[in-house]
């Protein structure tokens, strides 16, 4: 099991125990809040009341919270908005990033340096919020879903990582295709991309998570709360505890004006969490490649 090299001194029992305890604490501190949130979202109102807050021990289980949230209304719509923005945005970002990264992967090509410089400059200077807002609004994108996609469609970091990866592909491979008369597009599609599945998966995840989690763009650019993505709904109804029914067609009975029940709030949290938890394991093994190449060669 353990593969410590022969020259290393055997760890003392005390040291090993301390390390084990520390690691367990770290792992628990990550997993425990998630566990409680998930459990509470699946709990009956009685179980929540009995626990006096978040449920730590499984009691009465029910799907009521999810049934209510997915019966239409604010959360259903917000989930659809977020899914749509994430899907369209990730696709667009990946296409633009892959093309540009490939276009810049040949050192010495025409204008290679100035273009790269243009991209790297974005690391050094951040334009202010106000001018960015003015640009988006003068393009008429306020209250358009495109305002959640286009301003953040290219991340210089992802582009640089992708380019570094493409540059690591042996030149002999692409050269031989070129001698056979392949065009750049053919080389990219048939040779470079199939060799880069891992890095594309990682960069795709970075973009997708970015779009799914995007919050401030929506605060700035989306005034119409019928178009809110999930993160804004999460803030409104869970963090600030506002009534989920307020402002929905104006029909607010006394019961509905109350903040949503804890189970429902936690169910919204889980809905915001699930897509990330779901794709994460598939991409996770490629992480080191993506991040480290970016750092070393950027």
């Amino acid at each position: 099991m353990t593969t410590s090299p022969a020259w290393m001194e055997r760890p003392s029992p005390a040291g090993r125990t301390a390390k084990g305890v520390l690691l367990t604490l770290i792992v628990v501190s990550v997993l425990f809040p998630i566990y409680m949130v998930v459990l509470t979202s699946f709990s009956t109102q009685e179980a929540v009341t009995e626990a006096g807050g978040l449920v730590t021990r499984p009691g009465g289980l029910s799907l009521a919270a999810y049934r209510e949230l997915f019966s239409g209304g604010v959360v259903t719509r917000a989930v659809l908005v977020s899914l749509g923005v994430t899907a369209v945005g990730t696709a667009l970002s990946l296409v633009v990033t892959v093309l540009a990264a490939y276009g810049l992967s040949r050192t010495g090509s025409v204008l290679h340096r100035p273009i790269l410089f243009m991209i790297l400059l974005t690391f050094l200077f951040v334009p202010g919020m106000i001018p960015s807002y003015l640009v988006v609004s003068s393009l008429g994108l306020v209250d358009s879903y495109w305002s959640l996609i286009l301003p953040t469609a290219v991340w210089a970091f992802n582009l640089v990582v992708m380019r570094a990866f493409f540059m690591n592909i042996p030149q002999e491979v692409t050269d031989s295709a070129r001698i056979d008369g392949a065009t750049e597009y053919t080389i990219m599609w048939r040779i470079v991309l199939p060799m880069s599945k891992g890095v594309i998966a990682v960069i795709g995840l970075f973009y997708a998570v970015g779009y799914w989690n995007a919050f401030f763009n929506a605060v700035l650019y989306i005034n119409d709360n019928a178009k809110w993505p999930l993160q804004l709904v999460l803030r409104q109804y869970v963090l600030q505890g506002q009534s989920i029914y307020a402002g929905q067609g104006g029909v607010t009975t006394v019961g509905q004006a109350l903040p949503p029940s804890l189970a429902i709030q936690m169910a919204i949290v889980v809905i915001a969490l699930v897509p990330v938890l779901f794709i994460y394991p598939f991409v996770q093994k490629h992480f080191t490649k993506g991040v480290v190449i970016g750092a070393v060669k950027g």
Partner: peptide, 11 residues
């Protein structure tokens, strides 16, 4: 190099 340049255009 123009195909390469065209590729960087959207970004």
């Amino acid at each position: 190099d123009w195909p390469l340049l065209m590729m960087t255009l959207p970004a």
